[in-house]
Structures are given as C-alpha cells and as structure tokens.
C-alpha cells in the first residue's frame, strides 16, 4: 500500500473513532462540542504513562481512555444539568478549557508539544477503529441504545416510564468521552507526538459536522459521514485551493436537500427489504 493511501486510511480511522465519540451522546440528544478536549485527555494521559512510567501502550491507551471516561462522568454530572444549546456551549467551553490546560501544563511539554516513545502501527489503529465500530454496532442492538433514543425523542415521557434520563445521559456522555480518549491515546502513539493546539475547537466542530452529515438516526451514519469527510476532500485534491470551498458548498446544499443526514432509518429499511425479497 502506498504511504499516501496508508496515511489517508489512518486519518479515516481516527475520524471514525471521533465520530462515534460524538454520536453516542447525540443519540441521547446531547450535542458535545468539546470532544477534542476528551481526546486530549486520552492522548496526554496515555503518553505520560508510556513516557514517564515506561508503561506499554497496550495498557496506557485503555487507561487513558478510562480516564477520559471518568472525566466525562465527573464533568458530565454538573454540565448535563443544562440542555440544548446551553449544553452545546458548556461542552464547547469545556473543550477549550481542557486544551488550554494542556497548553499550559509544563510536565507534558506545554506549548512545545510532547514527544511520545511507544509506536502504534497503522494496523493497530485500524484494528482499534474496527473494534470501536463493532462495539457501537453491539450497543445499537441493546436496550441501552433504545433508552438513549427514547430520552432524545421525549425525555419527559421516558422519565415517567421509569427511564433514568440523567443516568442515560451521563452514561452516553462518558462513554463518548472514553471513545474519544481511546482515539486520542492512539493518535498520540501513532504520530509519536501530541500538541495541545491539535485538539482545538475546529476538531470538535468538524467531527460534529460529519456525524450530522452522515445522519444520526442509525449507527451507520457516523461511519459514512467520517468516510465521506476524509475521502472526498482527498479526491478533490486536483483543485487544491478550491477543495474546501467546494466541499463546504456541497455540505450546505446537501443539508438543505436532506437535513436528516445521508443514512436514515428509512434508507436502512430499504436495504433490509431488498435483502429479504430476492
């Protein structure tokens, strides 16, 4: 495989993981605009463990992911008291604060960045992304996922039916944070370098953008969205200068025509019916 293609596919794997980190809380109706902050936690925590304590990345990355998840719970509990746009803004602020904290944290290099010793090969990154997708497919088949959708579509009624709305929201938020931390940890170990500036607002915002673009009605949406956002700009490379402009224009027009995103429930039903009726 050419180095170029490998590089693109690795980026795709990272984008897929980020997409699911955004998707989980969104399935419960929460817009997390601070996903980059949780990636940063996973990246820095795991890098710190491999660098300073000589841990292997196989244990450091899961721990970093767990730590991001834990932060998701601790921060999620007060932050998730807010709703709608307030929640979006709270997570947005949260992402900014987290990455600014790392920017000022001298033990992990501060603004100069932080080199990482252990290396995660492209194969490892791909396997990890595949693992995340499988996990998400599994979750989407459970009652937990059903509860998340119920909370999203009518939290008042879900509550009256006995669903712990706050519990589900915090769980989805924290799980998303853990997935983000997992992706962040791998990112640090694949590129062998972390810098706080990478985990900025635009990373969070773009991730949300392609999840919504892919569609949030089904578990496939984020995957398709991430693939589209990673691959299409690459294909547009010929018109180098124009590619982002063209791409943005495309998104605007697409969302105007199909606001529910690319992959929808009815689209999936169509697929399934095709399969049964020969």
């Amino acid at each position: 495989m050419s180095g170029y293609l490998t590089g693109v596919l690795v980026v795709l794997a990272f984008n897929v993981m980020a997409a699911y980190a955004v998707y989980l809380p969104m399935a419960a109706g929460q817009l997390n605009l601070g996903i980059a902050g949780f990636m940063a936690i996973g990246a820095y925590a795991s890098a710190f463990l491999t660098n300073e304590y000589g841990w292997s990345m196989w244990t450091a990355i899961p721990l970093g992911s767990g730590l991001a998840g834990l932060m998701g719970i601790i921060i999620g509990i007060p932050v998730l008291r807010t709703h709608g746009i307030y929640l979006a803004m709270a997570t947005f602020a949260l992402g900014q604060v987290i990455s600014a904290v790392f920017l000022n944290l001298e033990v992990v290099g501060g603004a100069a960045g932080y080199p990482v010793s252990d290396y995660a090969s492209p194969q490892v990154v791909w396997a990890a992304a595949a693992g995340v997708v499988v996990l998400m497919l599994y979750i989407s088949r459970t009652r937990f996922a059903l509860c998340l959708t119920a909370v999203k579509s009518d939290a008042t009624v879900a509550d009256l039916l006995g669903v712990s709305v706050r519990g589900m929201q915090v769980a989805a938020f924290a799980l998303g944070a853990a997935v983000a931390g997992f992706g962040g940890g791998l990112y640090a170990h694949h590129y062998n370098f972390v810098e706080a500036q990478h985990f900025n607002v635009l990373l969070s915002v773009f991730t949300v953008l392609y999840v919504l673009f892919g569609g949030t009605q089904t578990v496939w949406g984020p995957l398709v969205g991430a693939a589209f956002f990673t691959l299409v700009p690459e294909l547009l490379r010929a018109s180098d200068q124009w590619r982002y402009a063209v791409f943005a224009a495309f998104i605007i027009l697409f969302m105007a025509v199909r606001p529910q995103g690319l992959v929808t429930t009815s689209l999936m039903t169509l697929f399934r019916r095709r399969r049964v009726t020969p």
């Binding site: 915002v205 953008l209 919504l212 949030t216 606001p259």
Partner: peptide
C-alpha cells in the same frame, strides 16, 4: 443541530 451544520458550512 442541522442548521448548526449548515451555518458552520457557510
């Protein structure tokens, strides 16, 4: 969230 996406697109 949809208008958010499109306005970010702009």
């Amino acid at each position: 969230e949809v208008p958010l996406v499109s306005s970010l697109g702009f």
